Simulated scan of single mutants.
Amino acid sequence: MNIAVLSGKGGTGKTTVSTNLALALKANYVDCDVEEPNGFLFLKPKIDKTYEVMVEYPFIDDDKCISCGACVYACKFNALAKVKDDIMLFQKLCHGCGACEIVCKAGALSYKKRQIGSIQEGTVDGIKCSRGILNISEPMAVPIIKQLLEELDEGVNLMDCPPGTSCNVVNSLKYADRAILVTEPTEFGLNDLKRAVELVRRFNIPFGIIINRDDGKENIIKKYCSEDEIHIIGCIPYSREIAKIYSEGEELYKNPKYRKVFTELSQRAREALKWN
């Protein structure tokens, strides 16, 4: 069972929910936010393995290249450009589709590999933790997300998705069986929650809502969920103490006062999302 935890925007508490629910459910934690993978800062797993993530890119043999420009016209990602009598390559724009190699009649194009990031695995409190890390200045996170999620373990996997509704989130949701949407009771929170709801509905993924920083009163999120018949799994209270614990890099689940909150959230999530 793969459960995607996502939000329509950053800063709603997505990683707080993901890491603490992983501890409460004894589930594997998977950090798919490869551009800013901060879940390990809180879980602090012992890292046992590290893998390189490689992608292919075209290599041009200048001795064979006749600068016809066929590869440039075939590339839909602007990774190749013809400048006078020379073909220029922009490695980081290449998606490795292979079109340029197919159309090159001179046989001047072949493919090599380069590293764009890595995957780390470790354990803490009996649960497996894994994360992808995109190298600085690299623009494409999807290859790392795909490699990270294609080899998930059996059991329950909590997928801490990237924020927003970009292609990084879309590629994460392709591996999800259920989804938990984390939001906050603000106008910005509601606006971006609606986008996230539309996205999971397009994938026909059963989902529920967790409201972070809730003051216990009626608010625009609760009203929206009621009107749109969206199940609210539960709420995390608005608390200065929670902010302090978070700022110190500690898990709320390990605090006796808030362990009960996440234990109840984990039970309600099981009931709402219907898995054994």
Results as ranks from 00 to 15, higher is better:
residue 122 G to K: 15
residue 181 L to Q: 10
residue 218 E to C: 05
residue 185 P to Y: 08
residue 206 P to G: 04
residue 253 Y to S: 07
residue 175 Y to T: 01
residue 137 S to G: 02
residue 227 E to N: 15
residue 181 L to W: 12
residue 123 T to G: 00
residue 183 T to L: 12
residue 153 D to H: 09
residue 129 C to P: 04
residue 123 T to Y: 15
residue 196 A to K: 11
residue 135 N to Q: 11
residue 141 A to Y: 09
residue 145 I to K: 10
residue 159 M to W: 05
residue 229 E to Q: 15
residue 191 N to P: 02
residue 195 R to M: 13
residue 169 V to C: 08
residue 253 Y to W: 13
residue 248 E to A: 05
residue 131 R to F: 01
residue 126 G to Y: 14
residue 218 E to Y: 05
residue 128 K to L: 03
residue 214 D to Y: 15
residue 167 C to I: 06
residue 235 C to N: 13
residue 202 R to D: 10
residue 123 T to D: 12
residue 192 D to M: 10
residue 154 E to S: 09
residue 206 P to D: 06
residue 218 E to T: 06
residue 218 E to I: 03
residue 138 E to V: 02
residue 165 T to L: 00
residue 204 N to W: 03
residue 207 F to E: 01
residue 239 S to A: 04
residue 195 R to Q: 15
residue 164 G to I: 01
residue 145 I to W: 09
residue 128 K to P: 01
residue 206 P to E: 05
residue 219 N to D: 13
residue 200 V to D: 12
residue 253 Y to C: 07
residue 189 G to L: 06
residue 168 N to P: 14
residue 241 E to S: 02
residue 177 D to E: 15
residue 154 E to V: 01
residue 235 C to L: 00
residue 250 E to D: 12
residue 228 D to C: 00
residue 154 E to Y: 10
residue 136 I to E: 07
residue 122 G to A: 08
residue 237 P to I: 00
residue 242 I to E: 08
residue 149 L to F: 03
residue 185 P to F: 06
residue 153 D to M: 05
residue 242 I to R: 09
residue 181 L to E: 10
residue 147 Q to K: 15
residue 197 V to W: 08
residue 167 C to R: 08
residue 180 I to W: 08
residue 234 G to Q: 07
residue 232 I to W: 05
residue 231 H to Y: 03
residue 136 I to P: 03
residue 174 K to V: 01
residue 142 V to Q: 11
residue 148 L to K: 15
residue 184 E to T: 12
residue 226 S to A: 13
residue 203 F to S: 07
residue 171 N to F: 14
residue 131 R to S: 02
residue 146 K to D: 14
residue 185 P to R: 10
residue 178 R to H: 13
residue 228 D to G: 00
residue 231 H to Q: 08
residue 126 G to W: 12
residue 190 L to K: 13
residue 224 Y to M: 04
residue 200 V to A: 08
